[in-house]
Nucleic acid binder design. Structure first.
Lengths: 147, 147
DNA sequence: GTTTTTGCAAACCATTTGCAGGGTC
DNA sequence: GACCCTGCAAATGGTTTGCAAAAAC
């Protein structure tokens, strides 16, 4: 169940130095349940007295983004948050209750993108789909009362 | 071809006061070709010596967002930008060349969202799809040289 | 030993807010 | 005339940067 190796080996393999602070940030990231902000990590690092500076956390996040271990989310509120993800899939359903994110595969989206490209004449390089809702757990927690 | 009325009548109809600064911002917005940032408008307002403060511009943008005349985009860079749009459609293809955005309708997306809801068990409240690519004009401008 | 990385603090940028004066309905 | 809106300047919050010391290779 250790997912840290993914992040850590990615760092090493990419030719970046495997330093203490980076390990620490990777661990913090792995410990996050749902989505989280840079500020969350900064706070947690301080709370645990890890002695890691803001800047280092931001730099580590950038690195993890670049390696595809994390993805940056833009929440409806405009906040920037991050979620862990597999380096391949690239869409998430984010729970507005607990912040947890589920990864989703194509689900027919490619066809939609192709349709749009055709209709608009644009050559589409990239896209981002973000979905927001309530996860099964959060629904169960509140739906026991059917009015 | 005047699109200003849309924005202006929307403001009035919604019960907000139709003031000089708001008119001015609406005009600036209408004059934008592609997407733009709040900073762009601030700079332009200052260049034209309109005497409108930053705060007012931000407040006017919020208003236009609320009225559905504008939509906020999160560019791949993480920047916040705005585009004019019809109050109904809610997805855009943004040109990375000129910044112009085309609106797109469903194009099968609803089915995709339903599929995702079914597969993940999430109850999906909202979603955001942003596409980035090159518009026909920008493609034509550079594609004259087929290798 | 060389090069990368870190921590700190200051700088920076975008956005928000408090408030007195001015404009709109 | 009452209330909404504006400008200003200061506060805020998030992110970046410069640089000397420390760590990794």
């Amino acid at each position: 169940m250790t997912e840290s190796p993914t992040a850590l080996t990615a760092i090493g393999r990419a030719g970046y130095r495997l330093t203490g602070p980076r390990r620490a940030v990777a661990e913090l990231v792995v410990g996050q349940e749902g989505h989280f902000t840079a500020a969350d990590l900064v706070a947690e690092a301080r709370a645990r007295r890890l002695g890691i500076g803001r800047a280092t956390i931001f730099r580590a996040l950038d690195l993890l983004l670049e390696l595809g271990v994390l993805e940056r989310l833009d929440l409806p509120s405009g906040e920037h948050a991050y979620v862990r993800c597999e380096p391949i899939h690239h869409h998430h359903v984010v729970c507005s209750g607990c912040g947890r994110a589920a990864e989703i595969d194509d689900a027919g989206l490619r066809a939609v993108v192709d349709t749009i490209a055709e209709r608009t004449g644009y050559e589409i390089d990239s896209h981002r789909l973000e979905l927001f809702g309530r996860c099964p757990d959060c629904r169960a927690r509140s739906e026991g009362v059917p009015s």
